[in-house]
Structure formats: structure tokens, C-alpha cells
Nucleic acid binder design. Structure first.
Lengths: 169, 169
DNA sequence: TTTGAAGTGGCAATCTATTGATGCAAAATG
DNA sequence: CATTTTGCATCAATAGATTGCCACTTCAAA
């Protein structure tokens, strides 16, 4: 993650490439650090509810108006969160065990299982709202709304770029 | 991670706050996704060397000119990578087992242990260089250098902000 | 109708990451 | 010198995340 440019071996780099490499090093280190801190501080923020950032993410996806009634399929959740199926299964299992989420084999396609918030899950999500809002406020305290949007857009593009690497079609 | 604003409960929000909340939701979801993809694609990029993104990060820190000779203390590595001591110990253990890194109780302060790249570790790091450069290039292909710098700066600020939440003093 | 692909679940192994508690050696402070 | 603090290690528990493989159901197409 650091200073691949600094290695004495390898062909000499043009100044331009060297600069980009240095930026890439720093950028990905910051992404790595920010991600670690996100999980650490985010999980603390909702620890009072026995939740973690991942459970928060799953519940947030299911709580959106579009998916509140019929839930989401496992496949949709995977696409939304960009995690592996095996990992998601374990997270859902814990949420099911906690009574916050339920698996349904709904309607048309018999292969599909929908995951949906339970009554209890909806109550829990509502209760977590203030903690989540406070967390966002603290984390983005010294960002203007414009800057936050800018960061979002850049992260969105980086995500797209990494996703293309991950799933070449 | 999604739509804390959408909950019907709670006091009504001013438009401004609602917009910021929405941005925050999207921003942190992107951070979460990008981080997952970073580990997935990054680990694949160096899998041929039996490495992972974390081992890559540790070796990168130790390979910098400033730490190449005498290494870094565990405390310095913790501050650099922003992970927990228990986690870092395990990562270092694996690197030691692989013969890429060594623990030294160097010089003055007898409490300090320096972690340093071995000969083999230096060779390995040099060999990983091309793969790392190729990964950076692919990941940032559609970013201009200016945009990459901009993303770095914003991530740096976010990291600082989250770190302040994590360690308030 | 047979065949194959898609969606899910289960199991195993490995690695990353956190918190919490205990312990020890060395340094700093009273 | 006694006490406290600092730096590090270890053990344990829990959660997140990946890959790889196998199995089952269901749908779609040959």
C-alpha cells in the first residue's frame, strides 16, 4: 500500500508515472484507514442496539421505501452491498436469529428468497435513527454539503472502477 | 447505511439537514462498497505471492526508505495503519512465519520491538512491485491525476474526522 | 423431456478485525 | 526504592469477508 515507486528495482519511471503512483499509494492507504475507522466507530455508534455496521447496512437497505414491503432477494442484496453470498448469508443468519429479519419464499420464481424486515426489525431500525444521524453529523462535521457530494461522486467512480476489476464480463 | 432520513418517526428535518443526511447515507455506502472491493481485488492482485492487502500494507510501510533499515515499532505501525494491536500482532505473526519480516528488540528502550523486512521480505516486496503498479493503474484508469489528488485529500480529511471520533481526548 | 443454468443454502478453511482481560518487562515518576 | 505508566504479547470470544466445493430446487432452453 506504500511506496511501490520507491523500490530501486524495476525500470525507471517517468516523472508523471511516479507522481501518479505516489498519489495512488497515499489514496489507497487513506481508503484502507478510513474503512477501518468506519467499521470501528460505526459499530460503536450502534453497539447499544447490539448491531454492527454490516447489520446496519443490511437493515438500511431493507428499510428503504422500495423494499420495505416485499424485501429484497439475496442476489439484490449482494449487488447492493457488494459482498460475497457466503458472507451475506452469515450476516442475515445473525439478523434472523435476533428476530430483526425474515426469509420468505415469495411469489413467482420459486428459486428466490426474499429477505424482509420484521415488525421488530422496523422498530429497531427506527430506534437506531437518532444514533445514525448523530454519527453522520459527527463524521462530516467539517465537510460542507458540496464537499460531501464531491467525495461521494469520487468514491462512486472508484467503486465502479474497482467493480469492473472484480467482475470482468 | 441507508436512508436514515426515510424513517417516519422522529422530529421533522429541515430540508438542509435532510439533504446532508441523504448525502451521508450514499457517501458511507460507497465507502463501504469501495473498501470491500479494495480488499477483494487487491488481495487477488497479490495472491500470486501468497499475500493479502493487509500484508501488502505492512510490507509497504516497512519498505519505505525511512524505515527500511531499522524498521518500525509496533506502536508506529498501529498509528500508520490505524488498526488494533491485537489484529496487527496476528498479521505480523503470519509475515514472520513466512520469513518476510522479523522482530528485533533494538537499542535504547528495552520495551520497544522493531519490526523489519528480512532479506527475503525485501526481495518479495520488489517482486510485487509490478503487480502493485498494474493494480493502481487499472483502479485509477479513468481518474486524472488531479482527480486522484482531490479524492486523496477528501479521504484524508474524512480519515482525520473519523479518527477524532475514535480517539477523543 | 432431458439437459443445463440460475438462485440458494451448507460446510470448510483462512484471513482480517474488534473488544476485553491478563501478564510481563522496562521505563518514568513519586 | 516503591509505584505507576508504557510497550508489547497472549488468550479468548465474536463478527466480517474471501475462496472453493457440494447439493438442492426451480426455471428455461435444447
Amino acid at each position: 500500500m506504500q511506496n511501490a515507486a520507491g523500490s530501486p528495482e524495476g525500470q525507471p519511471l517517468r516523472d508523471d508515472d511516479a507522481a501518479r503512483l505516489d498519489v495512488a499509494n497515499r489514496l489507497f492507504l487513506r481508503l484502507y484507514q478510513a474503512s477501518n475507522l468506519l467499521h470501528k466507530t460505526g459499530t460503536r455508534a450502534v453497539a447499544g442496539f447490539g448491531a454492527t455496521t454490516q447489520q446496519w447496512a443490511v437493515m438500511g437497505a431493507l428499510a428503504r421505501p422500495a423494499s420495505r414491503e416485499s424485501g429484497l432477494t439475496v442476489k439484490e442484496l449482494i449487488a447492493f452491498l457488494m459482498v460475497s453470498r457466503q458472507n451475506l448469508t452469515a450476516v442475515i443468519d445473525r439478523l434472523v436469529a435476533a428476530g430483526l429479519v425474515e426469509r420468505l419464499r415469495a411469489g413467482g420464481d420459486g428459486r428466490l428468497r426474499h429477505v424482509r424486515l420484521t415488525e421488530e426489525g422496523n422498530r429497531q431500525w427506527a430506534a437506531m435513527g437518532p444514533a445514525i444521524r448523530a454519527y453522520y453529523q459527527a463524521a462530516l462535521a467539517d465537510f460542507s454539503t458540496e464537499e460531501a457530494v464531491q467525495l461521494f461522486r469520487l468514491l462512486d467512480r472508484l467503486r465502479g472502477s474497482l467493480n469492473r476489476i472484480a467482475e470482468p464480463e
